[in-house]
Amino acid sequence: MNQFLLKIFALCLLLASLGSCSAALKPYERQYINDPEMSMTGFSANKFQHYAHAIREGSVTAEGKKGSGGCGCN
């Protein structure tokens, strides 16, 4: 698991370094990026389905927006 962690960390550093390659956008160029549908955090109407996935599968999501504890078993 340590080697897996190191590989993932290296990949994240590489992808983060790509940030320095992008020229800044001017405000009038952000009409598409600022569209609500482009949000990375998503809408509340999807969150219950993500919660159902976390209960019915052995994994959790990396976005990790868990509202509370609770079993949700059965």
């Binding site: 992008s22 956008l25 990375m40 959790v60």
Partner: peptide
């Protein structure tokens, strides 16, 4: 942890870990 990057006028990428 999360990181997002605007690539250009139409593309955004993100990396998230838990």
């Amino acid at each position: 942890l999360g990181f997002t990057q605007v690539l250009d006028q139409r593309n955004t990428i993100g990396i998230f870990s838990a």
